[in-house]
């Protein structure tokens, strides 16, 4: 078969339309390489088919292009990326990045907030601790005071029980001439012979001096004991007195005297 017969056999058309078998295809391609006329014939028929294919075409719906662009968007090269507006996948990446940014920003804000809270709580804790210590000290003070009040109440109860005793004789000693402001009371138990003293109102003793109680027995002063410096309320005197007609207090030297200094008598009262 010469080239011309080959070209007019219909194999060229079959080849261009894609209807040749694998062997026929290889055969045509070899012929095209060997014979320019075959190659030309192929080209001519291709142009004919192409021209026919461009007549009365049907246009696909517009959305198809968008769909294909979407599918190919990440496969477009970056050469003219400036012309690429925004494609789905790129948009997704940008969205992902921006959402990461938001997460990071949120994390930083939370961290700052948490740090702030830590400072706040620490200072609040310190404040509370200081207050707690103050309260603790106050409580201790109150407890100590309480103990001291309790002691005082005990003393007063004791004093009351002393005073309330039915055997108790009450002797009010009034201020002597020039010392009328002074007053003291002796409680004398007629049974036990114990002597108790209430320094209602006595001048504060000068340095080195002390009050001394005397019982006047048959006109003579008998030492009834020293008035303690810390005597508040009812104080039990150290000596018992069997009988007396009067009681008096003089200001003596510290520790007391054997005989009273009469001009230093502050109060005196008769046993009724």
């Amino acid at each position: 078969m010469d080239t011309r017969d080959y070209i007019e056999s219909g194999i060229i058309e079959q080849y261009v339309l894609g209807l040749t078998s694998v062997e026929e295809t290889a055969d045509v391609e070899n012929m095209a390489i060997e014979h320019v006329e075959v190659k030309q014939a192929i080209y001519d028929f291709e142009i004919m088919v192409e021209q026919q294919a461009n007549e009365n075409v049907i246009h696909p719906p517009a959305f198809i292009k968008t769909n294909i662009e979407g599918a190919l968007s990440n496969k477009f090269s970056a050469i003219n990326s400036k012309q690429i507006p925004h494609y789905k996948n790129e948009g997704a990446i940008i969205r992902n990045l921006s959402s990461l940014k938001y997460i990071a920003a949120a994390a930083i804000i939370l961290l700052l907030f948490s740090t702030g809270l830590n400072f706040y709580f620490y200072s609040a804790f310190k404040n509370t601790n200081t207050k707690y210590e103050a309260l603790f000290n106050e409580r201790n003070t109150l407890q100590a005071n309480n103990a001291s009040y309790r002691t005082q109440i005990d003393e007063m109860n004791q004093s009351f029980s002393v005073i309330q005793d039915s055997n108790m004789v009450n002797i009010t000693m009034k201020g002597t001439k020039g010392r009328e402001d002074n007053i003291a009371t002796v409680f004398w138990n007629s049974q036990t012979k114990d002597v108790y003293l209430i320094s209602n109102k006595l001048f504060k003793t000068p340095e080195g001096k002390q009050y001394q109680l005397w019982a006047i027995v048959d006109g003579k002063p008998v030492n009834a004991g020293m008035v303690a410096y810390d005597c508040n309320g009812v104080c039990k005197m150290s000596k018992k007195i069997d009988h007396a007609q009067a009681f008096a207090i003089t200001l003596e030297k510290q520790g007391g005297s054997a005989a009273p200094t009469m001009e230093q008598m502050y109060v005196i009262g008769k046993v009724s």
Binding site: E50, A53, N54, N56, V57, I58, H59, P60, I64, K65, I68, E69, L72, K75, F76, S77, I79, N80, S81, Q83, I84
Partner: peptide, 24 residues
């Protein structure tokens, strides 16, 4: 072969109708 956006646009704009006609 450079896979540019411009190449795609050109290809689609000039050939989609002919190819679509073959398909239908």
């Amino acid at each position: 072969k450079q896979r540019t956006q411009e190449a795609f646009n050109y290809l689609y704009d000039n050939y989609s109708a002919s190819l679509y006609t073959v398909i239908v």
